[in-house]
């Protein structure tokens, strides 16, 4: 009898010990030495993720002893989502808008319903907004959205059909027109028609528009992501352009998500989740702010507060009842945007 109890006890101790060791610092032996992640993202985040990937790799190795290599793919947000649906096996997606991430669920069930509630703050670890970039000295006196509909003002924006950023542009303009005193649906429609009537070049992506404006010298005003605007003002077109902040704008929330179907196939769920969560850490938020995205962390935001203009921001849920509705009404084939161009003929 006694030996039996002893054996049982020994086994129990051994099991407990091994459990304890697994919970402690040394990593589980099951983890491979190196792991590779693929982050499929949109155009303007190249510089951000180049820096963040290196930071996360350091953090992850220090914590787990495992090396991680992160591969990046950048392109237009919609094109990137479509590639993932068609078999580009991204472990994580970091796209321009929730509509594109949600396409992974709608079109191919790669991620479950409710994906946006899996991470804090709508799964958007950073935000941005839409501002104007004008020529030095603001020769056309552009102050607010209304000026973009004025005759003789040439406006550069990408095509909302193909560019995530451009959809934010469009929605911000629409909501401004709707909310101004005496504004209604018809007036918003007229305003948007005038604004797009002033657009001489409709590039397919945000980066194309920036190039058209900065390099080709076309247009009086560029409607752009705030982070792209900063990049232009401080780096690419330094001394040639300045930023104008409109009276109201949209809170752009570019969401991130792990792609369940693919991380389970690759066995990378743990590291992929950690990769996205680390975006919310102090270091992650600091990197985000350095690349002119608005950090979610109040502490980090306070450190960079002078960099971001105070502007009345509204979210897409408040103003449009979410992406589903905005997309159907404005951007689908035959929607308001199509009607605009078709009636212009």
């Amino acid at each position: 009898m006694v030996p039996r109890i002893l054996i049982l006890g020994a086994v129990a101790v051994a099991v407990l010990a091994s459990e304890a060791s697994r919970a402690g610092e040394p990593p589980a032996p099951a983890r491979p030495e190196k792991v590779v992640l693929l982050n499929v993202s949109y155009d303007p985040t190249r510089e951000l993720y180049a820096e963040y990937d290196a930071a996360f790799a350091r953090h992850w190795e220090a914590q787990t002893g495992q090396k991680v290599e992160i591969k990046q793919s950048h392109g237009g947000s919609g094109k990137q989502a479509r590639a993932v649906i068609d078999g580009l096996e991204a472990d994580v997606v970091t796209l321009a808008l929730a509509w594109d991430v949600d396409a992974l669920r709608r079109e191919a069930e790669l991620i479950p319903e409710g994906w946006q509630q899996r991470l804090p703050q709508n799964s958007a670890p950073y935000t941005s907004t839409i501002v104007f970039v004008v020529r030095k000295g603001n020769p056309k006196q552009i102050r607010d959205w209304g000026d973009l509909g004025r005759e003789g003002v040439s406006v550069i924006t990408p095509n909302p059909k193909t560019s995530g950023g451009a959809r934010w542009n469009y929605l911000a303009a629409w909501h401004w027109a709707l909310e101004r005193p005496g504004g209604d649906e018809q007036k918003a429609r007229d305003f948007i028609a005038r604004l797009f009537g002033n657009v001489p070049v409709l590039d397919t992506g945000a980066r194309g528009s920036t190039t058209t404006f900065a390099e080709r010298n076309i247009g009086d005003v560029l409607i752009a992501w705030e982070n792209e605007a900063f990049l232009l003002e401080r780096d690419i077109a330094r001394g040639k352009v300045e930023i104008v902040v409109p009276s109201s704008s949209i809170l752009a929330e570019p969401p991130v998500a792990i792609v369940d179907r693919y991380v389970d196939k690759h066995g990378t769920r743990e590291v992929a989740e950690a990769y996205l969560r680390y975006l919310y850490s102090d270091e992650g938020q600091e990197i985000v702010a350095r690349h002119y995205y608005r950090p979610r962390s109040k502490r980090v935001m306070a450190r960079h507060a002078e960099q971001f203009a105070k502007v009345k921001l509204f979210t897409i849920d408040q103003a449009f009842g979410g992406w589903e509705q905005a997309q159907r009404k404005h951007f689908d084939t035959g929607g308001v945007f199509d009607q605009l161009y078709e009636s212009k003929r």
């Binding site: 094109k79 479509r82 059909k161 193909t162 409709l202 397919t204 212009k344």
Partner: peptide, 20 residues
């Protein structure tokens, strides 16, 4: 790439794809 004005058919194919 302006719809109705300078958008060629191959580009519209790409645009359509990007809209799923």
């Amino acid at each position: 790439n302006m719809p109705m004005r300078t958008e060629i058919a191959p580009l519209l194919i790409v645009t359509r794809l990007e809209q799923y």
